[in-house]
Amino acid sequence: MSTLPLSVLDLVTVTEDTTTPQALQRAITLAKAADELGYQRYWVAEHHNMPAVASTSPAVIIAALGAHTDRIRVGSGGVMLPNHAPYVVAEQFALLEGLYPNRIDLGIGRAPGTDQRTAQALRRGPDALGVEEFPQHVLELMSWLGDTRLEEPMSATLAATPKPETYPDVWLLGSSAYSAQLAGMLGLRYCYAHHFGQMDEVSVMEAYRARFEPSPVLAEPYAMIATSVITAADTDRAEYLAGPAKHMALALRTNRLTPVISPETAVERGLSPLDEQMMGHLPATKFVGTPESVKARLQSLVDRTGVQELMLAATTYDVGTRIGTLRDVRSMGLQQG
């Protein structure tokens, strides 16, 4: 057995006491810590029109993260492709790869990452860049990034960069069997969003591997699972630090988003019995507790799913809490199955 590679997913959250510029600086601080701790990759999400999330343009943030880190791969978790013309994304990530060769990941998602009104504003029309064409758009995008499987692609006459030398690693992201099966059929790396997905994680990974076909970019299945983790020296402290995540999750489900509140504010507001019941079915943070208690459960998740990599996500009020969790999980010595 070998040590499991670890990675980070960040929404670049805005808290009740910070501005967007401060949130971006915190993301840089977190990325530098992940780099120093030996994490494999650092991804930023794409969300729009959300007061708690500053991560609206992954390519812009990735450029900044690459400049402030030395070794870690930086990328998108992910670019919501229905919001963008494939050629635009290809140009952005070809440029990023030119800036930071062999350090760029392009994670692609099918969801809009926002509400329908905002999605329409992004796409400049209700029918533009629909999800129905998603598989074709993925292949078109990849054709500009070195993939040669499409017949007569636009990349034959329209280049994303004049002389590409290396290409980003492309991942398909999702929380459904559809995304897993599509990743397998296209022969792409796959990341399952366990931190908010409601499907059985083992079934999703089985669907990915069952449909996998070798491709020009990947000979064998490669899967990662993203889950949410908050650790602390004792269980009560960990639950206290997870309070902001619970309230953010509830606000998302009731369309009443605000910047991330502090743990103290979360305690003051409390949770109703109905809120507690909802959190029981859809926990805002999947793994909360001491490093000792969390380690066995994380290892079980890895063993059950057979993933080659684990990505850590969490909503916290301060960057120190996340860095502490990254340090704790790094010291666990989780093993590949």
Rank of each mutant, 00 (worst) to 15 (best):
M279S: 11
S331Q: 14
G113N: 07
A59T: 09
G113F: 06
V294A: 05
L65H: 05
G306C: 06
G289V: 10
Y222D: 15
L129W: 14
A34V: 08
V53D: 02
L6Q: 10
H137E: 13
P101N: 11
G125V: 10
I72D: 12
I108H: 00
Q92I: 06
G197P: 02
Q181M: 12
P244L: 02
K295T: 15
P153V: 11
A63V: 03
D115E: 13
S300M: 07
R269Y: 07
V14L: 03
A193K: 03
R269T: 08
I28A: 14
E309S: 14
T13K: 05
T114I: 04
D303A: 13
M1A: 13
F134M: 06
T118K: 03
W43S: 03
A45T: 15
E206L: 05
G38N: 08
A52Y: 07
T118N: 07
V131N: 02
D318C: 10
L96I: 07
A111G: 13
I104M: 06
A219S: 15
F287R: 01
G38S: 10
L6C: 13
L99D: 11
L9N: 01
T321Y: 08
A296F: 11
L310R: 04
W171P: 10
R124V: 06
R211C: 12
R304D: 15
P112L: 01
R26C: 12
T265Y: 04
I261N: 06
D115I: 08
G107N: 03
E264C: 01
G113A: 09
L186I: 09
T227K: 04
E36V: 05
G280A: 13
R103T: 09
G270Y: 04
L4D: 01
V60G: 03
T227S: 12
L95I: 15
E91F: 01
H84D: 05
A180T: 11
L11H: 14
R103I: 06
P86R: 00
L334S: 00
E276T: 14
T20D: 09
A128F: 03
T258S: 11
V229Q: 00
A296P: 09
Y167D: 07
S57G: 07
N83Y: 06
A177R: 12
A33N: 11
P153M: 05
G38F: 04
A226K: 08
L96H: 05
D105E: 14
V202Q: 12
L4M: 12
V329N: 09
I104A: 05
M50T: 13
V44L: 00
A64T: 11
Y190W: 08
T316P: 03
L298R: 04
A128P: 11
E264V: 11
P5V: 09
V288K: 01
K286W: 02
V294C: 06
E220A: 12
E220W: 04
G113M: 02
V131A: 15
V260F: 04
D200G: 14
Y190P: 04
T56P: 04
L271S: 11
T290K: 07
A296M: 01
P244V: 02
D318Q: 13
I261Q: 13
D17P: 09
D127E: 14
R123T: 15
P283A: 07
Y100H: 15
L139K: 10
T166A: 07
Q116P: 08
T161K: 09
M154C: 03
G125R: 01
